[in-house]
Structure formats: C-alpha cells, structure tokens
C-alpha cells in the first residue's frame, strides 16, 4: 500500500482528507454545495448537522459511491482510487440484509477483500486478523454467530471490526452511534479513541449534539454548505450551531451546559 508522494496544493498542514469545491446534486437539487474541507491527520472528527443536511452524502461522495456534480476529493494528497487501502468505511447498519447466511467473523473478513483483490481467497492468517478485530470490539464470543442473531449494537460492532481489519489510515463512518445500546456506544468510543491514539484519522457522521464535545476533538458543522469546521472547542459554539440548525437551536442549550461549553 505505498502512497505515491504527490504534492498537496495547500500545504499549511498535512491533510488526511481534503475536499475542494465538492457539489453533489440529486435531480439537480444540491444535497451538498461547494464544500471545501480539510481534515488534518490524527483527529477524531464529527460531521454534524440536521436531517437532510447531506452528512451521509458527503461521505459517500468522498468515496465515489455517488456521482459528483463538481469538485475534487483527495486522501493524503491522492485521488481515492490510488489510496483505497488507506481508507476504511463503515456504512449505515440499515444498508444491508442482516438475514444473509453468514457469520460475524465472515463479515469482518470481508474487510480484507479489497486488499486481497480479485479472485484470491482469504487464508488462515486473514481469518486470524479478522478474529483479532472482533476481539478489539469485544465480539470474539460471537464470531460464529449468524449475523441476524446479533443485537443491533453487536451488528454495529461487527461493522466496526470490519473496518478495523482493513487497517486503514483514515476511517469514514456513517452514523455508527445510531440506535445502539450503551455497551456498544462505550465500546465504539473506546475504539475510536484507541484509533486516534494510534495516529489514525476518523470521520464520523454523528447526530447527538450532547455527546459530540465529549467524544470528538474536531467537528464539521454541515447544512448543505459547510457552516464551520475546526477544533471542537472553537467550532462547536452556540452561534455556529444556530447557523447550522436554524431556529431550532433552543433545546441545544441544555446539551451545551452538560458539555461544559458555557465555561468557555
């Protein structure tokens, strides 16, 4: 997985993910609009915004899963195709059929398919690293469980393990905290912090304003356009939130107090 050394046009700091002028439209209506975003290496970043703000669209467009109307996306200064191995992806849990006949371990080893490339099959070593990833999310006991017999949180952790096994440098996660139990939420956040400690970059679509300041150190506020992006202390301000969520900001005060933002 060698990264070809390419020069990034904006070299103020090393950007793990760099998005320029990205616009995505569904039926000629903009879902995200002229996004400029730089995610520095090693941060744990939340993408926050109201429903329909284009949070998932942003991630999918970055991974070229949906066509872009305009703009460029670079990971470590390279187009996505050349650095696929450096990028891990956790889709929304609802995007697959959990009744599929396969085990948790097998789902995790799917994370290795991209590295294996065409036709080659996963071997014993691959199974071991999949098992190790399951262990990391506390799921080793469920390795041979059929995936429909897992709880929602366990399914989410399986997805997370599948991304871990990719051993990427940057992870994009689409709502990993959506509808999970407390155990899973804690397990996920532990993993996220471990990833950051190992110098990985993590971008998480998140919808819970209460927990955002506690979990993340970087934030992008998105509502079709970028409202603000930067370190959470400086960016997660009532002003910016009001700009993101419009008039519905009233109930946020509670969350900010809990998060200790009013001290600042």
């Amino acid at each position: 997985m060698s990264v070809r050394s390419g020069k990034a046009p904006h070299d103020d700091w090393a950007a793990a993910l760099e998005i320029d002028d990205l616009t995505v439209a569904y039926n000629s209506r903009p879902a995200i609009w002229d996004i400029d975003l730089r995610v520095p290496e090693g941060v744990l970043m939340a993408v926050i915004g109201p429903n329909g703000a284009g949070k998932s669209t942003l991630i999918k467009a970055a991974l070229k899963l949906i066509p872009r109307a305009a703009g460029t996306v670079r990971f470590y200064g390279q187009p996505y195709e050349q650095v696929r191995g450096l990028v891990g992806y956790v889709p929304q849990r609802g995007s697959v059929d959990w009744d599929f006949p396969t085990t948790a371990l097998d789902v995790v080893s799917m994370g290795l398919y991209g590295r294996l490339g065409w036709i080659r099959r996963p071997g014993q070593g691959d199974r071991e690293s999949a098992m190790h990833a399951l262990q990391q999310v506390g799921m080793q006991d469920f390795a041979d469980r059929q995936i429909s017999q897992l709880s929602g949180g366990q399914q989410q952790r399986t997805f997370l393990a599948r991304a871990l096994v990719q051993d990427a440098r940057i992870y994009l996660m689409d709502e990993p905290f959506a509808a999970v139990d407390a155990v899973t939420e804690r397990a996920i956040i532990t993993i996220l912090r471990e990833l950051r400690a190992r110098g990985k970059t993590v971008v998480v679509v998140h919808h819970d304003l209460q927990t955002a300041p506690e979990y993340f150190d970087w934030v992008t506020l998105l509502n079709v356009e970028i409202v603000a992006s930067g370190p959470i202390a400086a960016t997660f301000t009532p002003d910016n939130l009001r700009q993101t969520y419009g008039g519905r900001v009233a109930y946020l005060h509670e969350g900010q107090r809990i998060a200790g933002l009013e001290d600042e």
Binding site: L63, K64, L65, Y113, G114, R121, P122
Partner: peptide, 22 residues
C-alpha cells in the same frame, strides 16, 4: 468459484464492495 468472494460481497453489501474498489 473464481468470483465467490466478490459475489458474496456484492450480494451482502454492495456499497461496501464499491468502497473497496470492486
């Protein structure tokens, strides 16, 4: 047999398959 792994992946999770370059 040749594309077993790929067929399994696109049947289970086509989006993830796409993100992995298949």
């Amino acid at each position: 047999g040749l594309f077993w792994k790929e067929f399994k992946l696109i049947t289970f999770d086509p989006e993830f398959a796409g993100a992995n370059g298949f």
